[in-house]
Each structure stands twice: as structure tokens, then as C-alpha cells.
């Protein structure tokens, strides 16, 4: 199987599905870069190079460079989804959802329910998220808890190139609105990705590593952190299992419960802020449904309850570290 970057895996999914289904269109700011200018066309291939080549392959009717008007184009994407197209709309940084949350939260998410099940909204909103790029407080948040909270939205957070491609194809084919979140520090990561099309169903967790002493639950970029922690724990003779839920809505409760039942010790790593976060949510689920199997308290390793700082030393301290995961794991094993 070919080695490909996370970015390329996403690009392949977009190329494939746009080629397969003429109803799929894309819109966003600088999806190509250079629209209306005199120099190179598709100069950026998207702000992070994910949409490169699509303009050439599918033309400007289907690959639409938008004004800086998120409320209007996310709303237009929702309306187009309601009426026969399958739009993929891009919010450059998920933080900018702040200016168009109404269209996501009150409109797209609720059409089907409010309209008595008679509507379909096959909309994908792609956005980058996450800290680590020294971009300050307004370009770095991990806002998936907000979307996960809203009934009607599906929330997808891939951690590997393989998952990125399969989950994006699934997202485009899904008939509900999907928030698809790409960690910007993962774009250059490389992994095995098949050339052809394949889908990964939502609500199916991936066992990223087998182990028996402690269960580490992690999503998105935190899977890497968990893997590093697991290697360190292995050196101390502790065997860690890692589960990546891949989608926070729907959430694969069965797999999480099954592994908690057998392992009995759980650490949850989450880059989002802790209050009402995904770590807290999963921890409540486990405490509620398999309390008797737990041999120790569930440990949460998250960002602090603060915005993301700019200074590199502070930003590094903000992001949950492998050492913090190791510490949490050993604290519940050696009790």
C-alpha cells in the first residue's frame, strides 16, 4: 500500500467523490488561491494545500472561491444540501465558526427534526482545528465539544491518513450534516492509504494499540500523544491499549464499554478545554455504565481551562503531553 500524507489522503477523497457524483460541489475561502488574479491559478490549492488540483479537474462552477462571508456561504451550502446538491463547505479555521454558528446550529442541524423527518441535509463542513502552530487564541481551538453537543450534527475527527480518506468519503455520502475536523499539525503526517475508494462507517472506534493494563482513549492529534505515552509505558513494563473513537457523534459506546470492562483502568486524553468536553462526556458514560468494572478512578488529561497562548513555551504546556498521560496512567496502576 502506498505511503501518503494526511493532506493527500483528503485530496484523493475529494477528487474521487467529485468525479463520482456531479452533485458534490465545494465552497470556501481561497479553496484555490489566485481567483480573479493575474498570476498562477490554484496558487495555494487551498489554505493548507488540501484542495489542490480540484479547480483544474472540476472547474469554477463546482469549486467555488467565496467572499469572506461565512454566514452566507455556510448557509447557502445548507440550503443547497436541502435542495439536491451535496456541498462540502470549508471554514478555514474552526474558530471562525463563531461568525456562522447560526447556520450550523440552528439551521442545518435542525432541518430534519423540525421538518418532521422530511428533510435531508447532506452537508459536510470541513474545518481545521487545534493548537501547536503558534497562531494565538483565535486560530487554535479544538471546538468539537460544541458541535458534539448539538443533536443533528455528526462530528468526525480523523487521526491518521487512512482514516482521513475513508471518513471523508463516508462524510460526503452521509445524508446528515457532518462537521469534519482536520488537525493542522497532522497534515504532513504520513501513513498507508490505498489508492482506491473506501469508506469507514461513523460510530466505529479503532483500536490503535492492543494492551491490557490501562486503556487510553484519544481522538485526533491526541492519538499520537497516546501512542508516545504507550511506548514510554511499555518501557516501564506497562501495557497500554489505545482506542480512537474517530467520531464523537455518533460515539461508539459499545467498544468503549467493552474495553473498559476488561481493562478496568482508563485515561482519556483530549486537546479541548476540559469543561463540558469530550473527555468529561466519555468519562461520565463509563462511570455510569461500567462503574463496577473500574479498578481505579478515570483520569482525564486535557488542556487547561484557558485560551490557547501564543508564546511557544506556554502553548507547548497547554497541549496535553505524553508525559502527562504516562503520569496519569501510572498513578492509577501503582495505587
Amino acid at each position: 500500500m502506498a505511503q501518503k500524507s494526511f493532506r493527500q489522503a483528503l485530496n484523493e477523497a475529494l477528487h474521487f467523490e467529485m468525479g463520482r457524483d456531479p452533485r458534490v460541489i465545494m465552497m470556501g475561502e481561497d479553496l484555490t488561491g489566485g481567483a480573479g488574479a493575474n498570476g498562477v491559478k490554484d496558487a495555494w490549492g487551498g489554505p493548507f494545500g488540501v484542495t489542490r488540483g480540484l479547480l483544474d479537474a472540476f472547474g469554477p462552477e463546482r469549486i467555488r472561491d467565496t467572499p469572506i462571508s461565512e454566514a452566507a456561504f455556510i448557509g447557502a451550502a445548507a440550503g443547497a444540501a436541502l435542495t439536491g446538491l451535496r456541498p462540502i463547505a470549508e471554514i478555514m479555521f474552526v474558530d471562525f465558526a463563531g461568525v456562522c454558528l447560526d447556520q450550523i446550529m440552528n439551521q442545518a442541524a435542525k432541518f430534519r427534526y423540525m421538518f418532521g423527518g422530511r428533510a435531508k441535509t447532506p452537508l459536510v463542513v470541513r474545518a481545521t482545528y487545534g493548537a501547536g502552530s503558534r497562531s494565538g487564541s483565535q486560530h487554535t481551538q479544538a471546538l468539537y465539544p460544541i458541535f458534539t453537543h448539538i443533536p443533528g450534527l455528526k462530528v468526525v475527527i480523523p487521526s491518521t491518513p487512512y482514516d482521513a480518506k475513508g471518513l471523508l468519503l463516508q462524510a460526503i455520502r452521509d445524508d446528515d450534516p457532518v462537521i469534519f475536523l482536520e488537525h493542522k499539525m497532522l497534515y504532513d503526517t504520513v501513513g498507508e492509504v490505498p489508492d482506491g475508494a473506501y469508506t469507514i462507517p461513523f460510530g466505529e472506534a479503532r483500536v490503535a494499540r492492543d494492551g491490557k493494563d490501562v486503556l487510553i482513549v484519544a481522538i485526533g492529534r491526541m492519538v499520537q500523544v497516546a501512542e508516545e505515552a504507550a511506548r514510554k509505558l511499555a518501557a516501564e513494563g506497562i501495557s497500554a491499549c489505545i482506542i480512537d473513537p474517530r467520531t464523537t457523534s455518533p460515539l461508539d459506546e459499545d467498544t468503549l464499554l467493552e474495553f473498559t470492562e476488561t481493562i478496568g483502568r482508563v485515561v482519556i486524553v483530549d486537546e479541548a478545554n476540559p469543561r463540558c468536553g469530550v473527555a468529561a462526556d466519555i468519562s461520565a458514560l463509563l462511570a455510569d455504565k461500567c462503574f463496577d468494572a473500574l479498578k481505579a478512578p478515570i483520569k482525564l488529561v486535557t488542556a487547561p481551562h484557558s485560551p490557547v497562548p501564543y508564546a511557544p513555551n506556554l502553548e507547548d504546556a497547554y497541549i496535553p503531553s505524553a508525559d502527562a498521560v504516562v503520569k496519569a496512567a501510572t498513578s492509577i496502576i501503582k495505587r
Binding site: I68, D95, F96, G98, V99, R134, S135, G136, S137, Q138, H139, P309, Y310, A311, L314
Partner: peptide, 26 residues
């Protein structure tokens, strides 16, 4: 801003400078 803001968030209220902004039009 004590290093916590960065280029996009330079603000100096004593000078009436209410902040650069990472959000367009904000």
C-alpha cells in the same frame, strides 16, 4: 501582551489601541 497574544492580538488600551484581530471584520 506579555507574550500571550502574538502578532494578531497586539493591543494597548493605554494608547486607545483596541486590538489587532484574528477574526476578519470583528
Amino acid at each position: 501582551c506579555g507574550g500571550k497574544g502574538g502578532s494578531q492580538h497586539i493591543a494597548d488600551l493605554r494608547k486607545g489601541m483596541l486590538g489587532a484581530n484574528g477574526i476578519v471584520a470583528a
